[in-house]
Nucleic acid binder design. Structure first.
Lengths: 220, 220
DNA sequence: CTGCAACTTAAGCTTTCCTTAAGTCTTTAT
DNA sequence: ATAAAGACTTAAGGAAAGCTTAAGTTGCAG
């Protein structure tokens, strides 16, 4: 995660750089507003941490200047002033968030993650197992990046097993999941779905049969 | 700007409702976490204000529950606890911002504006997806630079899906959006509009059907 | 008032999916 | 080795979901 830190104070800058680097941010640190503006045009950062009270430009100038140039990246402002009218102004000027010094590094990191997360749009939580990935929300299954079209039952089946790969899932449990309460099945419907699923996934070994018990998903 | 307020305390709820209404928010106020979850699925809000410490569900439960259901709308959490580890948890759980009670109404409004602004994206009020681009303000849709004439319903439909391409949009939600509150639809009107939209877009594969669920826009 | 465009509804059609059942293959136990 | 049980494969019939078309309404503009 590429982060631009705009901070003139050496002590604080170093502390923030270190603290955020430890938390998996890739920090680029500049000391002046002018540098911030040019740097943010040179490289595509994910997020900016901007201290007010820079030597050359007022921080709020930097802020509005960035926005005027069409920068859309999230900006978090650091301020010493706990002045509500000031902070309202900042937010309306285009800041996405602010923190008052002194602040907690964990919270700063969390706020930054939240900003970036929002900016990117939520990556939907995906289940994955080897080359198979399954997006529960969007009903999409990829095998080696290629979309695979599954029917509802097949999807349910795969999802149930992907919730716990490498583990044995009993027939009973799987039938319950796939057929909800719709009716008791007393045919081999489950086996048929397993068969079709195997075919669609393209590798029959991924779904192993545990004779007399159930199935296990084993990929990669 | 449609806002969902989740607050069980009558005094505070009324105060927030009033304060935000005065500031041009269109506030819908619910008292329980359960109501929040169902309401947010029924209507498309721009932003949520969520108080922790609800009677039925813990606020953080509501939060993660919304996120798991794929809600991407911005959520600001109100909390009484000034506990940094708690707030970090909230942010990582999917909150976009929080405020500690008591708070300043102007700042709340400013933070909410900032969230909505970011959600919509600053730069272009234009949505795009592959060769399709959609200008919300001018009601114009281009496919490969060529203008396409859509009716109001078709436009709404496309806009809703372009707000989140690659993502499944349930029939319910789409009907909600396309038919507003006008009446309950109990015909296949949605399907007809989808059909007409596909035809006008010129490529039937861009709008995929997810059987039993809804539709997904997939272009490029 | 008239005409056009957009919208809704309904009916029939197509596609996809699910279940069932029968036959085959594989494993296990005797 | 052989029988029995469990699992696999295949195909057919039917049900469900979605698609298409067309007719009837509505509403707005000329």
């Amino acid at each position: 995660m590429d982060l631009l830190l705009v901070e003139d104070d050496a002590m604080l800058g170093q502390a923030v750089e270190l603290g955020l680097s430890e938390r998996q941010f890739n920090v680029q640190w500049v000391r002046t507003g002018a540098a911030a503006i040019s740097e943010s045009q040179r490289v595509n950062y994910d997020v900016v941490v901007l201290d007010l009270g820079l030597p050359d430009l007022d921080g709020s100038r930097v802020l509005s200047s960035l926005r005027k140039k069409g920068q859309v990246l999230p900006i978090l402002v650091l301020t010493a002033r706990d002045d509500s009218s000031e902070t309202v102004k900042l937010l309306d000027l285009g800041a996405d968030d602010y923190m008052i010094k002194p602040f907690d590094m964990n919270e700063l990191a969390a706020r930054l993650r939240a900003l970036v997360r929002r900016q990117r749009g939520y990556a939907t939580p995906e289940l994955s197992c080897g080359p198979i990935s399954l997006d529960e929300l969007n009903f999409q299954v990829l095998v080696n990046q290629q979309p695979v079209n599954l029917s509802k039952r097949e999807f349910e089946l795969l999802r149930a097993m992907m919730a716990a790969p490498e583990r044995v899932h009993s027939r009973d449990k799987l039938e319950q999941i796939v057929f909800r309460n719709e009716q008791q099945v007393e045919s081999n419907a489950l086996e048929v779905h397993v068969h079709n699923l195997r075919k669609k996934l393209g590798n029959k070994e991924w779904i192993q049969t545990i004779r007399g018990v159930g199935y296990r998903l084993a990929c990669g």
